[in-house]
Design a protein around this nucleic acid. Sequence first.
DNA 1: AACTTTTACAACCGCAAGCAT
DNA 2: GATGCTTGCGGTTGTAAAAGT
Length: 171
Amino acid sequence: MGRSPCCEKAHTNKGAWTREEDERLVAHVRAHGEGCWRSLPSAAGLLRCGKSCRLRWINYLRPDLKRGNFSRDEDELIVKLHSLLGNKWSLIAARLPGRTDNEIKNYWNTHIRRKLLGRGIDPVTHRPLTDAATAAAAGRHLLPLQHPQSERSGDGVQLRQQLPGPQGRHA
DNA sequence: AACTTTTACAACCGCAAGCAT
DNA sequence: GATGCTTGCGGTTGTAAAAGT
C-alpha cells in the first residue's frame, strides 16, 4: 500500500500542546465537528499534523472524557475484557464510557499489569505464572537489566513481555 | 538541600485497514 | 486489480513529578 508522510514535518510543532493550541482545536471541532483530520490543522490555524490533532482531541480534549482515577469496577472490567480481547485497547475502551484507548493502555501498563504480577498472574495469558516466571517477578532485582536502551532494541519487546515489573525508565 | 531513581501519562511513530480513484 | 491517501490502532518514547537516598 502506498504510504506518504502524514504531514510536512518541517512545518509542524511537536511535543506538549499549549493552551492556545488546545483552544484552537476545540473551537474548530465544535464548529465543524470531528473528521477530516488531514485538513484540520491548516483550517484551524494549527502547526500540527492531523494525526497529532486527532490524538489530542480523542485523548484529552473531548468533552465526554471522564479523566481521574479508575474505579474498582472499571479496573475489574478492564482485566476481564483484556482476558477476552487481549491488547485490543480500542475495543476495551469502547466498553468503558469516557475512557480512551490510550488512557486504558497506560493504566494497564502502569497499574494493572503490576498488580496481576503481584498476585502471581501472567498479565498476558491471565493464568498463574510458571515457577520461573514467578521467581523472576518476585525477584526482579536479580535481573541484570531494566535498561530501556537494551530493552528497546531488537528482542527487547519479547523480553519485556516475559519480564514482569515496571517498564524501567530513567529520566 | 541536592541528587538519583522511579512512576505516570501525554504524545509520537510506524504499520495496516479501508476507501477512493 | 493497482495505486495512493487518510484514518485508526498499538507499541514505544520523552519528560515532569514524585519518591527515595
